[in-house]
Design a protein around this nucleic acid. Structure first.
Length: 470
RNA sequence: GGCACCGUAGCCAAGUGGUAAGGCAGAGGACUGCAAAUCCUUUAUUCGUCGGUUCGAUUCCGACCGGUGCCUCCA
C-alpha cells in the first residue's frame, strides 16, 4: 500500500500521516450542538469524518474517536428558557435524533460521545491552569477571558490578522469588559436565565458556565490526552473555534494540541452555504420521505472531494440513486454467481490497488468511486463470459467487500420482509405460468401489479429475480 | 476592505507539464415474447476569458470575468 497522506490545515499542505504511537489514531471530531436536529450540511462533515475513520482502519490502525455533543450554549439556553424547561430536557431528545440519523447514514459509532455538561470539572481545571500560567483573567463582569496577547502564536492556523477590524467584516456588538476585543470567554458568568434552566455551575470564579471553545479542549485532552493525532471539523470552525482551542490547550500544556487539523468543505444549496440562518436546510428526515437511501447520499457526498464545496441538487441526488442501484445489483450478482475467471481476478486486483491508492491520497473518494465502477464494469463483463474459477470469484468478493467497507454503498432493499416476499413469489409463479402458456398479456399485467408496488423484476435463464426499488 | 477556495461534456465530477477517469442523462446495437439487468458502440480536438513562460499547458505565472466560503454563532 502507498503511504497515507492527508492535508494538514496547519501547514496547508499534504503530509504523510502515521499515528503518534504507531498503532492507534487519536481522533477528535467536533460534533453537533444539540438544540435542533443536525442538517445535511452538518452530516456532510460527519460523513467526511466517517470516511477518514474508515480509511484509517483500512490502513490497519485502530481509531479512538471522540465526537463531542455540545449540550450547553447560548442557543440551547435561549430555547430552553422560552419553553421553561431544563437544558437537559431540551437536548436529550435531540441527541437521540442525532444518533438515529447517524445510524441511518451508516456513520460508524465513535468510541466516545462526551456531553459538555458531563465535563464541567475538567473544564474548570483547564481554566485554573491557564489562570496559573497568567493567561486567563477574570473581568469585571465575572467572566474569565483568555488573553491572546499572552499567546504569541495566536492566529497560526487561520492566519487571520487579528489586530485590525476591516470594513465589511461583521463585528461583535457587545464587547463586555474584555481587555482586548479579540480575547474570548473561557468561563461565562451566569445570568438568571442560565440558572433557571440548569445551565450554571459553581466555580472558583463564581456561578457560571463554560465557553464553547473550552469544552472541546477539555474533553479532547481528558479522553485522548494532551496531543491528538487528528482534529477534524468543518471549515467554518477554523476561526475562531479551532484557533481558540489551540490557544487554550497549548497555553495550558506547552505541548502541540493536534498534529493534524483536517477540515471538510461545505455543502451548499442553491449556491449558498446550507445553514439554518439562510433557511435552505434539509435533513435526514427529508431524505427518508423522499426515498433517498443512505447509500445514495453517501455516493453523493463521496463523489466530490471533501475539501471542495458540494452543491446539493435534485439532479445530483437522482444520479447517485441510480449509481447506487447499480452497485446494489452488482453486489447481488456477486453473491449469486458460483465461479469466475482470470478476467474477474484481474479486475479484483486492480480495484484493490486503485481504490486503496486513491483513498490513501488525502481521501480521494471520487477517484475511488471511479475505480469501483471500473471494477463493476470489468467484473460484469467477466461474469458474462462465464468461468469455472471459484477462487477468482472469491477474490472479487473480497476486493468488493474491502472497498465497500470504506464507502458502504450497497442500498438496503428490505427484501427480508417475509410477508412481502411470499406475496411476490406468488405473483411471480402466476406470471411464470402465464408465460409458459405464452399468455404475455397476463404476464405483463402481473408485472405491472408488481411494479406498482415498487417491485422490479428481471428474467434470466435461471428464473426470475425481483427487488424493491424504492 | 482582508484571507482563502472554485470555474473541466446536457448535469455531477477526478486528473496530469506531453496530449481529458468515473457516475447520471442521451443515441444506436446485442440479449429478451416485450421489458429489466448486463454487454458492445457512441457522446469534450477540449478543460471560464485574454496574455505570458515552455519544444509542449487544462495542468506553471499574470490580468480579467463569474461563483463560494471565512473574517460574529456556525459542520
Amino acid at each position: 500500500m502507498p503511504e497515507f497522506r492527508l492535508y494538514n490545515s496547519l501547514s496547508r499542505s499534504i503530509e504523510p500521516f502515521v499515528p503518534g504511537d504507531g498503532t492507534t489514531v487519536k481522533l477528535y471530531t467536533c460534533g453537533p450542538t444539540v438544540y435542533n436536529p443536525a442538517h445535511l450540511g452538518n452530516f456532510r462533515t460527519f460523513l467526511f469524518e466517517d470516511l477518514l475513520r474508515r480509511v484509517l482502519r483500512m490502513r490497519g490502525w485502530a481509531v479512538e474517536q471522540v465526537m463531542n455533543l455540545t449540550d450547553v450554549d447560548d442557543k440551547i439556553i435561549k430555547r430552553a428558557s422560552e419553553r421553561s424547561i431544563s437544558i437537559t430536557d431540551l437536548t436529550d431528545p435531540v441527541v437521540e435524533t442525532f444518533h438515529a440519523d447517524r445510524e441511518y447514514l451508516r456513520i460508524q459509532r465513535a468510541e466516545h460521545y462526551p456531553r459538555a455538561t458531563a465535563f464541567i470539572p475538567e473544564m474548570i481545571e483547564l481554566v485554573k491552569r491557564l489562570e496559573a500560567n497568567g493567561i486567563a483573567y477574570k473581568a469585571d463582569d465575572g467572566t474569565v477571558y483568555f488573553a491572546i496577547d499572552k499567546f504569541p502564536t495566536y492566529g497560526r492556523l487561520s492566519r487571520l490578522d487579528t489586530r485590525e477590524i476591516r470594513a465589511g467584516a461583521r463585528v461583535a456588538q457587545d464587547e463586555y469588559a474584555k481587555e482586548n476585543a479579540q480575547d474570548f470567554a473561557l468561563w461565562k458568568a451566569a445570568k438568571p436565565e442560565d440558572e433557571a434552566c440548569g445551565a450554571a455551575w459553581d466555580s472558583p470564579w463564581g456561578r457560571g458556565r463554560p465557553g464553547w471553545h473550552l469544552e472541546c479542549s477539555a474533553m479532547a485532552m481528558a479522553i485522548l490526552g494532551e496531543t491528538l493525532d487528528i482534529h477534524a471539523g468543518g471549515v467554518d470552525l477554523v476561526f475562531p473555534h479551532h484557533e481558540d482551542e489551540i490557544a487554550q490547550s497549548e497555553a495550558a500544556t506547552g505541548k502541540p494540541f493536534a498534529r493534524f487539523w483536517c477540515h471538510g468543505e461545505f455543502l451548499l444549496t442553491d449556491g449558498a452555504k446550507m445553514a439554518k440562518r439562510v433557511g435552505n436546510v434539509s435533513t435526514v428526515e427529508d431524505l427518508r420521505t423522499n426515498g433517498v437511501s443512505a447509500a445514495a447520499l453517501r455516493h453523493f457526498v463521496f463523489s466530490t472531494h471533501y475539501r471542495k464545496q458540494l452543491n446539493l441538487s435534485g439532479g445530483a441526488l437522482e444520479a447517485s440513486m441510480e449509481a447506487v442501484r447499480r452497485v446494489g445489483d452488482f453486489s447481488d450478482r456477486l453473491s449469486r454467481e458460483r465461479a469466475g475467471n482470470a478476467g474477474l481476478a484481474e479486475a479484483a486486483d486492480t480495484l484493490i490497488v486503485e481504490a486503496t491508492t486513491a483513498l490513501s491520497d488525502d481521501l480521494n473518494a471520487p477517484r475511488a468511486l471511479g475505480a469501483l465502477f471500473d471494477f463493476i464494469h470489468a467484473a460484469n463483463k467477466a461474469l458474462d463470459a462465464k468461468g469455472t474459477d471459484a477462487g477468482a470469484l472469491n477474490r472479487a468478493r473480497d476486493a468488493f467487500r474491502q472497498v465497500n467497507a470504506v464507502l458502504d454503498l450497497v442500498p438496503d432493499r428490505g427484501t427480508d420482509d417475509s410477508e412481502l416476499a411470499t406475496w411476490v413469489e406468488e405473483q411471480l409463479a402466476a406470471r411464470a405460468a402465464a408465460r409458459a402458456k405464452r399468455d404475455f398479456g397476463e404476464a405483463d399485467r402481473v408485472r405491472k401489479v408488481l411494479e406498482d408496488k415498487g417491485i422490479a423484476i428481471e428474467d434470466s435463464p435461471s428464473g426470475t429475480r425481483w427487488k424493491k426499488v424504492h
